[in-house]
Design a protein around this nucleic acid. Structure first.
Lengths: 336, 336
DNA sequence: ATGAAAGCGCTAACAA
DNA sequence: TTGTTAGCGCTTTCAT
């Protein structure tokens, strides 16, 4: 059987209460050093390990934080997981990963199997976040909403894409692009900040917007789908001379498609992607992209969560983090 | 306050015992359908959510599985996380991610903050796995060891790289490489199966082995380090005509370095990588690689874990999964 | 078909 | 300085 604090207590002829106090390092309670030592030694000797379920039941805190994401496949989510895991570890928390996109049936808020966590970091997942926030406050844990699609009704760290997108588009215009298409998922939201910025910029520069829809959303086959899309367009509609891609996966696929067709990048077609994933640097023609401040986002999110634990009643706090346009060879050519 | 089964019981004028039985779907206990319905309705109305900490304390099972990995940065680990998360979710388990590489201090086995999980899936982490297995059985949970560096003293799913590596090297020889270097981390294990296969093949074909060490291990800067290494070698030692790269990150970096130097791939230097990450397909010259059966690995690992839960006393079972060499343009040229 | 009572291992008032 | 006692919310015998 597992050793419990009572076993340890018996060993040193003390009450389990004292053992609990020692093992929890309660310096606020006067206990002679000799006693402490004896307890610690006995605990070690017996191989005592705390039972967090019991502790959680007694304290109401679990030491676990959940990361909500919808589809862990997008390359930058691995980065987010690493960052968040690091934050959690440093704070002696455990991290549970919940891929909500794959969740069958109802959203997480009425999924009874969800572990009782002390807090939630949600990357995107706007629908689930909204549903969760609709629960009575007594039934919720603190939730920090992160990402491009964040929710400002709770603590949040927003990734702002509008400025960088505008910059990217002006850049494309400045190198002489006259027909810039937006390559994004078929079911793209009308109020996606990239799309909004795109439409505004096109209007302002009096160019016709052109949406190119990649079927199938952004899953692992995105690159292949984008590649095919480009090849199809080449045959049917002809190609634009500039591509703003909704994300780097799409950009990489599109780039590949162009290479297959023998189209030169950036000379014939200039490309800009979005997300700043590492792969974009290692193509023969490194892709221009929009870099996301992921590390800062995760840091801030953890800070907000800690703050919420410390002051449950504090008013909502949010941070806006601007993304940054990173011009690279795929869109650099002599100005028109 | 949170609603408990007692609240629900009060609402329907039954004992909390009955409520528990209904809510757990205990069909083995005779309860009239009307009663069941009433209970379920009340539970819904009151917004009842089970408290898993309490359940865990009562049952001794937590419904949580931990994934040990050492450095979540390697590209294919995102895939592993997705796969494992999927397996867990389908079985109504939660997944905790533990990045042991970043763990300061002692290995996980004496880290008291580790949540009591029902089982562990360990990808690599040979040292931590060995330390864990050294604990008395009564203090451990089932652990399945996965990956190239797996431990066969517990249930395991081994990734076998030897065969594919040999195939890759013979392939390089067959296209005329006469000087094949192994590009790997500086601190590479002497018994790494890739390295062993490399040394054997070199011996058998009477070629001199040449190790090229990438500083810094396989972290996010690997690509950059490999790129630099290649460039340095070009100046100092001259370049081999074939590169077997320890992993795809290194291969991509090396490839990039060669491009920078104007060296043609595969004509001047042929490259093979290892891991089968997606990026290798999207370079102008797609890289030959060794594809890992990750999906099968995760499936098998979950199967073994379930089996262990069902039969705690069963004898150790293990599976060996061979990796597969995937020749692509980076090593395809007319045979010598 | 339903309930009473015990107990999972721990923390935390309250006593001594 | 240490111990007693009472839960935390749930599952599970054992009665009825």
């Amino acid at each position: 059987m597992k050793t419990t604090i009572r076993d340890v207590a018996r060993e040193v002829s003390l009450s389990h209460t004292t053992v609990s106090r020692v093992l929890n390092g309660r310096e606020d309670i006067a206990i002679p050093d000799i006693t402490r030592r004896r307890v610690e030694e006995a605990a070690r000797a017996l191989g005592y390990r705390v039972n967090p379920a019991a502790r959680a039941l007694a304290t109401g805190r679990t030491g676990v934080v959940s990361l909500w994401a919808s589809g862990v496949y997008r390359a930058f989510w691995a980065d987010v997981i690493v960052q968040v895991e690091g934050q959690a570890r440093r704070a002696a928390y455990e991290l549970i990963i919940n891929d909500l996109s794959a969740r069958v049936g109802r959203p997480a808020d009425d999924d009874p199997s969800v572990w009782p966590i002390d807090g939630i970091l949600a990357l995107g997942c706007p629908a689930e976040v909204a549903a969760y926030l609709a629960l009575p406050a007594s039934q919720r844990q603190p939730l920090v909403s992160m990402g491009v699609y964040h929710n400002e009704k709770t603590d949040f760290v927003g990734l702002e894409l509008g400025g960088a997108t505008r910059q990217a588009l002006r850049h494309l215009l400045s190198v002489g692009c006259r027909r810039i298409a937006y390559v994004g998922p078929l079911n793209l939201n009308a109020d996606d900040p990239r799309r909004v910025a795109y439409e505004e910029e096109m209007r302002e520069s009096e160019k016709a917007p052109q949406m190119m829809g990649v079927p199938g959303g952004s899953h692992r086959g995105t690159r292949a789908a984008a590649r095919r899309l480009i090849i199809d367009y080449h045959k049917t509609h002809g190609l634009p001379d500039g591509l703003f891609c909704h994300n780097d996966e799409i950009a990489i696929g599109a780039y590949r498609g162009l290479c297959d067709l023998g189209v030169r990048v950036p000379d014939d077609v200039a490309i800009v992607g979005c997300d700043g994933i590492e792969d974009t640097e290692y193509l023969e023609t490194p892709l221009s992209t929009i870099a996301l401040p992921l590390e800062a986002m995760c840091e801030q999110a953890w800070r907000l969560l800690s703050r919420r634990w410390a002051k449950p009643e504090a008013s909502v706090e949010g941070v806006h983090l601007p993304a940054q346009f990173v011009p690279r060879a795929s869109s650099l050519r002599a100005p028109a």
